[in-house]
Computed example of a mutant assay.
Amino acid sequence: MSKPMTKTQLIAALAEELGADKKTAGTALEAVTAIITREVSAGGAVTLPGVGKIYCRERPERMVRNPQTGEQMKKDADKVVKMTIAKALKDSVNG
Results as ranks from 00 to 15, higher is better:
M1K: 14
S2I: 12
S2Y: 09
K3C: 00
M5P: 06
M5Q: 10
K7E: 07
K7N: 04
T8I: 00
T8Q: 15
Q9W: 07
L10S: 07
I11Q: 05
I11L: 04
A12Y: 02
A12H: 00
A13R: 07
A13V: 11
A13M: 13
L14H: 06
A15L: 06
E17W: 11
L18R: 11
G19V: 02
G19K: 03
G19M: 10
A20S: 07
A20Q: 06
A20F: 03
D21T: 06
K22R: 11
K23M: 04
A25Q: 03
G26M: 11
T27G: 02
T27C: 06
A28W: 03
A28D: 07
A28M: 03
L29I: 13
L29G: 04
E30P: 01
V32E: 08
V32G: 09
T33F: 14
T33W: 04
A34S: 14
I35R: 07
I35Y: 13
I36Y: 03
I36L: 04
I36W: 02
T37E: 15
T37I: 05
R38T: 06
R38L: 13
E39H: 07
E39R: 02
E39F: 00
V40F: 01
S41P: 09
S41D: 09
G43Y: 10
G43L: 08
G44V: 06
A45S: 14
A45T: 08
A45C: 00
V46Y: 00
V46E: 00
V46L: 06
L48I: 12
V51M: 15
V51E: 00
K53D: 00
K53C: 09
I54W: 02
I54H: 02
I54Y: 03
I54E: 02
Y55L: 10
C56F: 12
E58S: 13
E58T: 12
R59L: 12
P60F: 06
P60G: 13
E61C: 00
R62M: 12
M63T: 10
M63W: 05
V64Y: 07
V64I: 05
V64W: 04
R65Y: 05
R65P: 01
R65T: 08
R65S: 04
N66W: 05
N66V: 02
P67L: 01
P67I: 03
Q68I: 05
T69S: 08
T69E: 05
T69G: 01
G70S: 06
G70P: 08
E71P: 10
E71W: 12
Q72S: 13
Q72Y: 15
Q72P: 01
Q72H: 13
M73C: 05
M73V: 01
K74N: 06
K75L: 15
K75H: 12
D76M: 08
D76E: 14
D76C: 09
A77P: 06
D78A: 10
V80L: 08
V81T: 13
V81R: 03
V81L: 12
K82F: 08
M83C: 10
M83S: 07
M83G: 02
T84Y: 02
T84L: 03
I85K: 12
I85P: 03
A86Q: 01
A86E: 05
K87N: 14
A88T: 15
L89M: 15
K90S: 04
K90Q: 13
D91M: 15
D91P: 10
V93K: 10
V93T: 10
V93Y: 07
V93D: 01
V93S: 11
V93N: 03
N94L: 08
N94W: 12
G95M: 08
